[in-house]
Write a protein that binds this DNA or RNA. Structure first.
Lengths: 217, 217
DNA sequence: TCGAAATTGTGAAATAATGCACATGATTTG
DNA sequence: CAAATCATGTGCATTATTTCACAATTTCGA
């Protein structure tokens, strides 16, 4: 299940976070940025920024700061986002449809190359992006054939595991799962779960405790 | 013994996670559930489940397990999801539209009561759920008037802060921010950020290191 | 050229979170 | 009714993560 790594996983999450303001700095021709500035914009501690980067090398200049463009390039190289990744998506409900059209993904180098739905009546419908919805039974063949890198699951919970199995069959290596169920996966496939209502529940808990005057994190 | 003073925030996140399978158990008339079973379904350690619950009380029976229905009720009470929460959403692009229609939210007791867009040309358009899109300038008055609990931001990054300011003006207490920028907020408003491409980047990093034969989590 | 200011990189301390292991209490079985 | 079994609750050791604090390095101005 879990092997050893010396890189804390919160560090990876934050590297992605840092890249947002860095992109802005590059676009606005701000050549140099300090760990303090970056930390402020990302809501973290400056020492944290430096330590996160230190896991991978020395990218800054003491007394000066970091070259925004260079640091951004390094972070992209570290994360693996310096190349295009292809994605297929299973479950073309409202959420699925919106993700396929999502500009942020495209801008960051992700490209949707196939869209599936378990309900074969949706098959054939053409999406604004040009893709046509395919029946889920096509997944193994299509995904293998296209050499798709990542899968996104946006089916209802009860169908998530079935969608996942089809993706495993296609030998996919990573899945972003938006359904509310945990998917059981073989060793060779990495699953990242994003349960949107969990996020809302977090918010609600904090508001509740705040209102009740209880101490909170 | 209920000691609410120092609740780890991962615990809160997991409580929400536990409620999913618990709901299924209740629906399928499975009255008793063990920490081991629950842990397995959520991909965590059984001791973790017990410890998480122990922060809030003793809900199980030694040698037996937990009453699914009762535990679910308790978790909902703890999280504050035992009542309806009203939501307004700002940014009616693809993502915003899909969230408004999202069934999961409705099932969990969240209700959208207003939808806004900064582009006033979208105003007046009626959504499938019955709401009509309003211009963002209406936020302060409308949100206050309706006593909305939570805000969701689904605008492009560059407009996120502006959307947030309008929500602050309406005295909103919590915001779920889907844009790729960190929003600066006053003390009195809690922000939860959900950057979807950060999730993808995590996945990509793990795949990269896997491919390169590097040790990983 | 020197000293002050700025800012990184990092060892070590502090804090936080997890998981083990076992005492405890419930239930079942022979 | 005793023994075996099961599963919770929890003290404590372990592991993970964050933050501090300061030496090292660069820049700038007098």
């Amino acid at each position: 299940m879990t092997k050893r790594s010396k890189i804390p996983s919160p560090t990876i999450e934050r590297l992605a976070l840092y890249s947002r303001p860095l992109q802005s700095f590059v676009e606005s021709d701000t050549p140099i940025v300090s760990s303090e500035k970056l930390a402020e914009l990302c809501g973290v501690n400056p020492a944290q920024v430096r330590k996160d980067l230190a896991y991978f090398g020395e990218f800054g200049v003491r007394g000066v700061g970091y070259d925004a463009q260079e640091l951004l390039r390094e972070i992209k190289r570290i994360l693996g986002t310096d190349r295009e990744w292809t994605i297929c998506i299973v479950g073309m409900g409202n959420l699925g449809m919106s993700l396929v059209e999502n500009d942020n993904f495209r801008k960051r180098g992700y490209r949707f190359v196939a869209a599936f739905d378990l309900d074969s009546r949706k098959a054939g419908r053409r999406l604004p992006c040009g893709l046509a919805i395919q029946p889920a039974c096509n997944i193994p063949e299509q995904v293998r054939g296209l050499g798709v890198d990542l899968g996104i699951i946006t089916t209802p919970s009860r169908e998530a595991q079935r969608a996942a199995e089809l993706l495993f069959k296609a030998n996919i290596k990573g899945i972003l799962n938006f359904s509310a169920t945990q998917v059981r996966a073989p060793e060779c496939c990495i699953i990242e779960n994003v349960d949107l209502s969990v996020k809302l529940e977090n918010l609600v808990y904090h508001l509740e405790t705040l209102y009740k005057g209880m101490p909170m994190k």
